[in-house]
Every structure is written in structure tokens, then in C-alpha cells.
């Protein structure tokens, strides 16, 4: 469609495209404007005030919150944790998800049982996951302590959630456990989108399964793969749920993420002004990183 020539016909075509695009986009944009854009603008406004979040009096303090944010060690350490979570989420969830999907795609229907069971973690609510893993990772009677004891032959205690930096990595592991199934399903769908005749043709040409995956499927999955990375990236930068249920940011802030920090300030410490500033800062950081990622890694599609 991008190959239009400079002619009257092309112009009318461009116009009709613009019109069609508007019609298709309007419902989504309207909803987003009301439910997301308005609140985020509101957040930016509040970030200019000193406000406890409930009083009708708020004091305008200009950029003071922002100046504090730039110097705020707690915020930047939370951001650092987010980056660690991001890197490991992408490195764990996506490759494992991809491998599982490849396996299932190769096996077809006879692996349906695998698929169903592999998908279970994604279906569990964070409440249950947090509870079970607190016990599984516990120093006393936890699975890892038991495993260590088994290997070493003497009593070993592994403290995963009570110490820095163990706690952060423990939580990253649990997150990977929870979200990998989604990427698995996502890649299965990606494989499903590849024309089966492509595979048939490749087989006729003498390609093996491995060749097919390496030279045909993976390149074809390109855009899907990059979207998955972007999702994992954004997801881990704004993550809240499981951390809140498992560690609430502890011990001593070692699993504090931007979102948990913001939540505590806004809703527990009566510091909505600064909490909003953290939220706005978080929004800017995530957007910039996500767009940079798009720019660097996502090659423009050809039209």
C-alpha cells in the first residue's frame, strides 16, 4: 500500500485511507482518552503540589517534587531493581516460552497434555502464587533448603526471601514461572499464523525440522518476537502485583519497585503529591525505554 504514485488517484486513495483509519481508530482512542490519558494528565498536575491525597488544601510547590525525585536514592534504587527484573524477565520468559512453543508446534496435538499443564501457572492468581512460593522458598522447610540438604548431606539453610540480593532474584524466578506460559501461548499462536504450505514446501525441498525452525519459522516470527520483548519490558517496568503480595518491597527495600514505592507514598504515607510525581517519572522512564527499544530493535515494516 505504501507504493502509491503521485497521481490524482493516489491522493483520493490517501484521503479514503485517512477516513477509514479514523473510523477504525475512534472507539479505541476515545476510551483511552477518558480512562488513561485524563488520569495521567491529572497525575502530572498533582505532581506539582504538596498534598496528602485527601485534604481539600493542596499547596502548589512547582518543581520541588521533581527536584526531590531526581535526588531520591530510594526511587533510583527501585528503578535499578526494575531494570534487573526487566533484563532477567526478557532473558528467561521469552526464550523458555519460545522453546516450549517450538516443542509443542513440532509435536502437534499429541502434546496437548503438556500444553495444558504448562499453561497452569498463568491461570493461578497472584495471591495463591505468593502464598505457595513463600513456603516453597522458605528457609525452614522450603524446597531449596531441602534440596541443599539432600545434596550436601548435612543441614543446609537457604535464605532466599530474607536477604538482599537473593530476594530480588527469587521474585524474578517466580515471575518467570508465572509469565512464561503466556509467552508460550503467544508463540504457539505465532507459529499458527505461519502458512502451513511454507512448511510443506520446505519439507519437499528436503529441509529438516531444525532447518525449518532456524531458517524459516524464526525469521517469520520476527515481529511477534519483538512485540513479546516489548511486552515483557513494559510489564516488568511497571510490575506490582506479585511483589506486593510476596515481599511488599522488603527486606529493607531490596525488592522495592517503582510501582510499590509509588503505591506506599500515595496510599499509605499520605504523600500523594510526591507519589504522583514518582508515578509520572515512572511513566516517562518506561515510555522512553519502550520507544527506544522500538526504534533500535524493531525494524520498520515494509508496506
Amino acid at each position: 500500500m505504501g507504493r502509491s504514485k503521485k497521481s490524482g488517484l493516489a491522493k483520493t486513495r490517501a484521503k479514503s485511507i485517512a477516513l477509514a483509519a479514523t473510523v477504525f481508530l475512534i472507539p479505541a482512542l476515545l476510551l483511552i482518552a477518558v480512562y488513561i490519558i485524563y488520569p495521567i494528565i491529572d497525575t502530572f498536575l498533582i505532581s506539582g503540589y504538596k498534598w496528602n491525597g485527601i485534604s481539600s488544601n493542596r499547596t502548589f510547590i512547582g518543581l520541588e517534587n521533581w527536584m526531590n525525585l531526581i535526588k531520591d536514592k530510594l526511587f533510583w534504587s527501585a528503578f535499578g531493581h526494575n531494570l534487573v527484573v526487566m533484563v532477567f524477565s526478557i532473558l528467561l520468559q521469552i526464550p523458555i516460552g519460545m522453546m516450549l512453543a517450538t516443542f509443542l508446534d513440532a509435536g502437534g496435538k499429541k502434546f496437548n497434555l503438556f500444553k495444558t499443564i504448562w499453561f497452569l501457572p498463568y491461570l493461578m492468581s497472584s495471591v495463591a502464587i505468593a502464598f505457595l512460593f513463600t513456603y516453597a522458598l522458605a528457609t525452614n522447610g522450603g524446597l531449596f533448603s531441602a534440596l541443599g540438604t539432600l545434596i550436601k548431606g548435612q543441614k543446609v539453610t537457604v535464605d532466599l526471601l530474607g536477604k538482599s540480593p537473593n530476594a530480588l532474584f527469587a521474585v524474578i524466578g517466580v515471575m518467570a514461572w508465572q509469565f512464561t506460559p503466556f509467552y508460550m501461548v503467544y508463540f504457539i499462536a505465532g507459529y499458527g499464523n505461519i502458512d502451513t504450505t511454507v512448511y510443506e514446501a520446505a519439507v519437499i525441498d528436503g529441509a529438516t525440522r531444525v532447518d525449518y525452525i532456524r531458517y524459516i519459522a524464526i525469521p517469520l516470527l520476527g515481529p511477534i518476537f519483538k512485540t513479546a520483548c516489548t511486552m515483557s519490558l513494559i510489564g516488568s517496568l511497571r510490575y506490582f502485583d506479585l511483589i506486593w503480595n510476596m515481599t511488599q518491597g522488603g527486606p529493607v527495600g531490596s525488592t522495592e519497585l517503582m510501582a510499590t514505592y509509588m503505591y506506599k507514598l500515595s496510599f499509605q504515607q499520605f504523600n500523594m503529591g510526591y507519589g504522583s510525581c514518582v508515578a509520572a517519572g515512572m511513566f516517562i522512564l518506561i515510555t522512553v525505554i519502550a520507544l527506544l527499544f522500538q526504534k533500535v530493535f524493531v525494524v520498520k515494516e515494509d508496506y
Binding site: I36, I234, F283
Partner: peptide, 11 residues
């Protein structure tokens, strides 16, 4: 993409 980055709690 930017709208995906909005922290849910501010809304």
C-alpha cells in the same frame, strides 16, 4: 506504546 506504560494505580 506510551499508554501501556501508565501505572495502573494513578487511575
Amino acid at each position: 506504546v506510551a499508554m501501556m506504560s501508565v501505572p495502573m494505580h494513578v487511575t
